[in-house]
């Protein structure tokens, strides 16, 4: 099962060590908060759920569809995970996915794993979730505003991840100038983000038609589960 290769997974050697270490520190703090919040709100039932969900995100990244000229759209899944599981649990799931991709499949380096988790798991999932909630409120509640809010949040999450990654590469000495990296990375991810948005929306619509009760999964208290 070859994992699909994403440009957002930086390998080791592209970002200077001080930046990588600093990003690890930031990521560690966020993950610590996420662990505490998840432990407080979810029952022990959540462990198999989140583990299987991490496998789901990993497998869902294999799905792609042809766009044009040999390129294809596929999913990162940060916003989808956050909408279904809640922002903190979603962050843990994305961090696990990135950790396994780095440890097992060399998709993303070890020293730079902190910043990979930050770019995809934290920006995409936490940031994407807050944006989603704000937009959903704007569009008249989660019931009606779910799909448009999810579309915008999914697109922004991918582009913001690319911007963040470009800044980290651009701040590293001996790399191409920031403007060039930013242009290339963001240019590509503006398109990738559209694929992300379309798939996220379609997946949510599908779940809404078949098992709408699962939208309450993330709010379910330990007693009710």
């Amino acid at each position: 099962m070859p994992p699909s290769i994403h440009l957002l997974h930086a390998p080791d050697g592209f970002v200077s060590v001080p930046i990588a270490v600093a990003m690890w520190a930031v990521t560690a703090v966020v993950l610590a908060i996420a662990v505490r919040r998840t432990n407080a709100t979810l029952s022990e039932r959540a462990v198999p759920l989140l583990g299987v969900m991490a496998a789901f995100i990993f497998a869902a990244q294999m799905f792609n569809f042809p766009v044009a000229g040999g390129t294809s759209g596929h999913l990162l899944g940060g916003v989808l995970a956050a909408i279904l599981l809640g922002p903190w649990a979603g962050t843990l799931v994305m961090a696990s996915v990135i950790a396994v991709q780095g440890l097992l499949f060399q998709d993303g380096g070890l020293v730079v794993m902190g910043l990979n988790i930050f770019n995809m798991g934290v920006i995409g999932t936490l940031g994407g979730y807050w944006l989603y909630r704000a937009l959903a409120g704007l569009f008249g509640g989660e019931g009606r505003g779910r799909l448009p809010a999810a579309a915008i949040a999914a697109w922004v999450s991918v582009v913001a991840g690319a911007v963040s990654m470009s800044l980290q590469i651009g701040l590293t000495p001996d790399m191409p100038p920031l403007g060039l990296v930013l242009g290339a990375m963001v240019g590509v991810h503006v398109l990738i983000g559209i694929g992300e948005a379309l798939i996220t929306v379609a997946a949510l619509a599908f779940i809404g038609v078949t098992r709408a009760d699962l939208f309450e999964l993330r709010d379910r208290s330990p007693q009710a589960a």
């Binding site: 789901f56 497998a59 869902a60 799905f63 792609n64 569809f65 759209g73 999913l75 989808l80 379309l198 798939i199 996220t200 929306v201 379609a202 997946a203 949510l204 619509a205 599908f206 779940i207 078949t210």
Partner: peptide, 8 residues
């Protein structure tokens, strides 16, 4: 593709 993700 989204439907596939949903059913997965």
């Amino acid at each position: 593709t989204g439907n596939m993700v949903g059913s997965l």
